[in-house]
Design a protein around this nucleic acid. Structure first.
Lengths: 184, 184
DNA sequence: TCGCTCATGTAACATGTTACATGATTAG
DNA sequence: CTAATCATGTAACATGTTACATGAGCGA
């Protein structure tokens, strides 16, 4: 039920319409954290209204409805954020790791090399985003963009290091076996 | 369609029944990478059979059917593994990061502290799993358990460092503001 | 007035979860 | 014989995606 809590979390910041919330998912939020389309958001807002977690505070042009979070909604959001994280994550990247051993060795090496290269590209992009923004960061250390960007920088760096280390281990194993068994 | 490819990847290694595959998802695979229940696996095997990606190679006691991958199945698995990773990951942890700024500062600090502590616990567990297994690793550097374990070690370490750095930044901002505005 | 963006909704389908349901084989 | 495990399946529901559908307001 993460969409429900994502919507509540966004509405904690300020009231918004379904359209506004849809736009929020089209940026970094949708790219790195959670995707959602308007076709899922509108029914979910209706459900949240029925549950008393949000309410329509104004209706504007073109049928626009502005939603605001209620006290119950704030409480549910806080509970969700503070409770222990999810059991059993679903992570397609890690799934691929588990399946690397089902590939031929050369394919596995090409895959790992691709992961390392892709990580380098992403790191360059994030460093570009962060450069020149250190001042903002000091003034608001919880700013969500920075928190997520620093997270990505560190985690993607770790992934690059992991892929390179795995490649080194494979090379070491190949050299050892070619040395002892005479294969190239 | 990751379940489909997870099943193909497992069947590349050796033929198995739906029951065997269900068991495979109950271990580390299900915990860290991808979950699936028998109620999803059996229909998916039927679909893969219809698509010519797997075939029943023997029927045993209690209606047991052993499935083996076909040439087409191998090709589809390889294509999926080697093609560029998914667009738009869904990651509940990163979603929470984006929403940290919707919390009160004290709540945010408690959350980050909890992430750092939880990361330390997980790291201890993984180090325990890895200790004494270095020899196996050298003999099979692609072994899926080790590849995923080393990945987790590095990524979770990066998460712990990130959470601690974020806490430091918050403390620094608090001290700066209490120094200039006289609040404690 | 014409095209773009704003703004909301529904329907059909795919995927994933929980619960229900059945029965065979084997070890003690 | 009886309990645990092996082994397969379906049904109802929840969640998420893609496509279909409509119309208002605004700027050129």
């Amino acid at each position: 039920m993460s969409l429900r809590h994502a919507l509540l979390g966004l509405l904690v910041r300020e009231p918004a319409s379904g359209y506004d919330l849809t736009k929020a998912f089209e940026g970094a939020l949708g790219q790195f954290a959670w995707q959602a389309r308007h076709s899922q958001i509108y029914p979910e807002l209706k459900r949240l209204t029925g549950d008393g977690r949000v309410e329509v505070v104004s209706e504007g042009a073109r049928g626009r409805k502005t939603y605001a979070i209620t006290g119950d909604g704030r409480a549910e959001f806080r509970d969700w954020m503070m409770r222990a994280p999810e059991t059993g994550a679903r992570n397609e990247f890690i799934l691929r790791l588990f399946l690397v051993s089902s590939l031929e060795r050369d394919e596995a090496k090409a895959l790992l090399r691709g992961y390392a290269d892709s990580a380098d590209e992403q790191l360059t992009g994030i460093r570009g985003f962060l450069s020149g923004r250190e001042d903002d960061w000091e003034s608001d250390p919880l700013d969500h963009g920075h928190l997520a960007a620093d997270y990505s920088l560190r985690v993607i760096g770790a992934i690059r290091d992991w892929a390179l280390a795995a490649l080194d281990r494979i090379d070491a194993a190949e050299n050892a076996s070619s040395g002892s068994r005479g294969r190239s």
